[in-house]
Design a protein around this nucleic acid. Structure first.
Lengths: 108, 108
DNA sequence: AGTATAAGTGACAATCTAGTCACGTGTCAA
DNA sequence: TTGACACGTGACTAGATTGTCACTTATACT
């Protein structure tokens, strides 16, 4: 079994992929051709690979319609990770802020 | 100027680094030696490099005390990114859920 | 002073990733 | 049915990342 969380983090680590997610936020259902036009500095193949990574991570869901492939954003994985991390923070937040204050004050 | 957001995402992309953050969540102020013991599969140098990446990204703040270097978690960058992303989601959430519903219903 | 301890540097090898390209497959439209 | 269109695959390269090691530096202890 692959560590799904890791796939999501790695998928988010690339600026081009975050841009693609942005575009799908703004306009869901774009085809590869549409998305390709949004990243003129890359060829179709580069964009395809990035979309593949996003799909593997479950951040993008696709649907073929004739010779077109539509891409849809799936916000669930990112929300799950967020909730996990934020919960961790919630427990520690007050203490962490106090610590930070201490560090700043203790600095020479 | 470097894109700070990108540094944070890239820093979070590695499981070892997320583990190190976890350990600092649990026990703030650990030294390199302490953290090294938490990742027995790596040498001290590997851990050092990871801590360097986290520090570059601003996720970890350090403070030297004698020959010890203490590491403190800084939750601010991750919160900033979270808020940015969640704001995006907040705007789009209702629409995205409707879209998703449409896709499901439109599926043959 | 001399030695052990904690951390830092620069060079190096191995692996992963991003990106391109030639070529291939399926689908629509005249 | 032929050609254009939209997308897919596998091989390949350049560059980034990960991890190790020999060697250094700085601080503490006795």
């Amino acid at each position: 079994m692959v560590d799904h969380e890791d796939l999501v983090f790695k998928a988010l680590a690339d600026p081009t992929r975050r841009l693609l997610l942005d575009r799908l936020f703004e306009h869901d259902g774009m085809t590869l051709g549409d998305l390709e036009a949004e990243v003129p500095e890359l060829t179709r193949f580069g964009v395809m690979k990035h979309l593949g990574v996003l799909e593997q991570a479950g951040l993008v869901v696709t649907r073929k319609q004739g010779r077109h492939k539509h891409h849809y954003l799936n916000p669930v994985p990112i929300r799950l990770i967020y909730e996990r991390w934020i919960d961790k923070y919630r427990d520690r937040r007050a203490a962490a802020l106090l610590d930070l204050k201490d560090h700043v004050e203790a600095r020479p």
